[in-house]
């Protein structure tokens, strides 16, 4: 099971790398927001996985915070970008 856990962590890390590349490359702001949102979900899973593997179930609290904050941030940024665009 341990090996599977490490492999899973590594796979999540690699997928986070690709998400990060998309966030760095853009080209539109929406691509970046999408990448950030996806990265947030991956982070939630990563933290939950780590919590189980390290025997620290209290990590799940952090995972919940991530899940909440990720949605709030994505929604807030989207609305703010829309405001900026519509005003122009």
């Amino acid at each position: 099971m341990t090996a599977v856990f490490w492999a899973a962590c590594a796979a999540l890390l690699v997928s986070m790398l690709l998400f990060l590349l998309r966030a760095l490359l853009g080209p539109t702001v929406y691509d970046r927001i999408l990448a950030m949102n996806g990265l947030g979900t991956k982070t939630v899973l990563f933290v939950a996985l780590l919590g189980f593997f390290c025997g620290r179930p209290d990590f799940l609290d952090i995972a919940i915070v991530y899940a909440l904050i990720n949605f709030v941030t994505t929604a807030a940024i989207l609305r703010l970008v829309q405001h900026a665009r519509l005003e122009s």
Binding site: Y30, T41, P57, L60, D61, A67, N70, F71, A75, Q82
Partner: peptide
């Protein structure tokens, strides 16, 4: 807590995706 996380993501993740897509479409993409 895991069930809570899962339900929360099940609701918010598609919503966020939808909101991003519709914002991009509204802008003219």
């Amino acid at each position: 807590k895991l069930v809570l996380i899962s339900i929360f993501l099940l609701v918010t993740s598609p919503t966020a995706t939808h909101a991003i897509a519709s914002a991009a479409y509204q802008e003219g993409l």
